[in-house]
Design a protein around this nucleic acid. Structure first.
Length: 162
DNA sequence: GCCAACGTTGGC
DNA sequence: GCCAACGTTGGC
């Protein structure tokens, strides 16, 4: 049974554009969001993030750091195989394939913001009071409240839905 | 490049 | 279980 539209949830994924940019996601059409090695983010990837959820794509360590586009979840959490690969930068020798520690989801691009929203500008928006990104948090996968989502899409000139 | 904030590790 | 030391993130 399909979920109610009201059950769709929203997330923010950070990526350094030098390693993986929104433009690259658009070129790829879809990607495996692998390499997350933080337990709080892992819990979201494994337990909370569902197909069709919305994703805000954030460029960290960029000039300026900014929200740059909208993506959607196309596959829910499953084990991150790079953890088992000794040749991978993300190899985790403590992770057991029988009981994986690290998870990933797949996302696909929806559309870029017509106007990227720099972090400094986000900090000025009263609508974003309490947003995880603006708190002292280094979480690379984090929740976004529905009101914040709507505000950000409107501000960035992106459509409400897909 | 600096460095503050944060998360993880490991000795005890 | 505490907490100091260490490594990483990420804005500036």
């Amino acid at each position: 049974m399909p979920r109610q539209a009201s059950a769709r949830r929203y997330w923010l994924f950070k990526s350094e554009p030098d390693s993986y940019s929104f433009a690259q996601l658009q070129a790829d059409g879809r990607t495996f969001w692998h390499g997350v090695r933080n337990y709080q983010a892992r819990n979201l990837l494994r337990d909370e993030i569902q197909v069709d959820d919305g994703v805000l794509f954030y460029h960290s360590n960029a000039s300026p750091p900014a929200l740059v586009g909208v993506a959607k979840v196309v596959r829910a959490g499953y084990p991150d195989a790079t953890a088992f690969d000794p040749a991978s930068d993300y190899h985790d020798p403590k992770s057991n394939p029988q009981d994986p520690t690290w998870f990933q989801v797949d996302i696909a691009p929806v559309q870029p913001f017509r106007r990227p929203l720099p972090l400094a500008e986000l900090r000025e928006m009263p609508e974003l009071e309490g947003m995880v990104l603006l708190q002292k948090s280094r979480l690379s996968v984090q929740p976004v409240a529905p009101g914040q989502w709507r505000h950000l899409l409107a501000s960035g000139g992106a459509k409400e839905s897909w």
